[in-house]
Design a protein around this nucleic acid. Structure first.
Lengths: 234, 234
DNA sequence: GACTGTGAAAAGTTTCACAGCT
DNA sequence: AGCTGTGAAACTTTTCACAGTC
């Protein structure tokens, strides 16, 4: 499931063996996918970097530059065919596949995640849930039976799980992440406020509302300053 | 509550009227705060950029450079006094104040947010909740009575609310954000997958697990490539 | 005429390396 | 001796501007 036949060929660089795409660019592609999906839903068939940029609050040049890392998807004088560009970007990101996801930790937060309807439409299938607490094991949440942590290795392998969502108490984060990595999980979405250490071939992204709030308060502190200034007392 | 007497004076630049601190730096400060808090809890009294960098997986030079935007907090040859640096950083970020926060949208997600115990210890007080649905209005969640949207302006003003968390259905995001901005809310934590437009003096941060997953799948797609490479078919 | 794709310039960010303080 | 604070260098990312194509 994680290996998909692919045939990317940026025409201008067809013989290079590996071109580095900046990580910031990869981080923006999902937003392009989302905007293109919205345009398609609205019946828009053709768009351009100007329009996409306006939607996403990004410069048109950046969109063109980002896309140029992967190929030439537009037509000069016309723009981009929405459906075509969307298909290409989804393929680049691996979103033409289904990804099986496990949730570890079924407390309040894990429960909310298992009931959240937003993952499936985007190709992420929550297929297993694990918890330590014997009171939870066996319960069914969002149509998934909670399993004991003991089953982790077996289930990750048999159900072809590549991605895990961690929603355990902070103190258990590193240990759970270690177990996931040992089982072969290669991407982790971490809902705990802990910086887990992983080998360099494993990806971690964190969902951390408190950090997000704490960086905004800086800008609220001196009222009336718009950009990030630093006012001296002098 | 959002105006706190302050007396920042980076000694080396005491007479400049506004020094721009890069936004990336501001985004890292809360992580420093978190790590310093952990060190303090462990009884560590003195640290240095080496140790902080190891914890945060950041270079020591970056930490020293980041801190240098705000002043000189360390002692050469010794390092940083944990408690002192923590106090300074919290003050810089405005975390020495209490921030009153409203939650808008009390569906499953809003419920989880209102019950999440992680905001309070960091000085973010959830003090009001709003919902459109008459079935919800009047219910109490996490000790807070849900109010109708009609009450928004009055309550934001009377309860000195500067920050809002938006957890409404996607279709309502922009309209809710507009209302919040009109009421004087200046920072918004957006849990919906919509790019809300706001005036430049209002801050928005998004919590978007699907985007996070979608950018990771890129790296899962070609197995065995560690950094972000782009494999050609040639 | 309109819009892409892209080298080159500009801007922003990180890292280096070392003077200077403790 | 050890570690900070910081200019300057190296590197990354964004923006510009225009040749080329539709």
């Amino acid at each position: 499931m994680s290996t998909i036949p692919r045939d990317f060929k940026p025409a201008h660089l067809a013989s290079a063996s590996a071109i580095e795409v900046p990580e910031v660019v990869i981080d923006r592609l999902p937003q392009y996918v989302r905007t293109l999906t919205q345009l398609l839903d609205e019946g828009v068939e053709v768009t351009n970097s100007q329009q996409l940029g306006a939607q996403l609050q990004v410069t048109p040049a950046q969109i063109r530059k980002d896309l140029s890392y992967f190929g030439r998807f537009g037509k000069q004088g016309r723009g981009y065919r929405v459906r075509h560009l969307l298909t290409e970007l989804k393929q680049i990101l691996g979103l033409d596949a289904q990804w099986n996801v496990a949730v570890v930790g079924v407390g309040r937060l894990g429960n909310a995640i298992l009931n959240y309807p937003g993952f499936n439409p985007d190709g992420f299938h929550l297929v297993a849930a694990f918890d330590n607490n014997p009171d939870n094991v066996g319960r069914e949440v969002g149509g998934i039976a909670i399993q004991p942590m003991m089953d982790l290795a077996e289930t990750v392998s048999s159900r072809d799980i590549t991605i895990a969502i961690v929603a355990v108490p902070s103190a258990h984060t590193q240990s759970v992440v270690d177990q996931l990595v040992d089982c072969g999980v290669r991407a982790i979405l971490n809902y705990t406020p802990i910086n887990a250490q992983v080998p360099s071939d494993v990806r971690v992204r964190s969902i951390d509302p408190v950090l997000a709030l704490q960086s905004m308060t800086y800008y609220l502190t001196f009222q009336g300053h718009e950009s990030n200034g630093y006012r001296s007392a002098g």
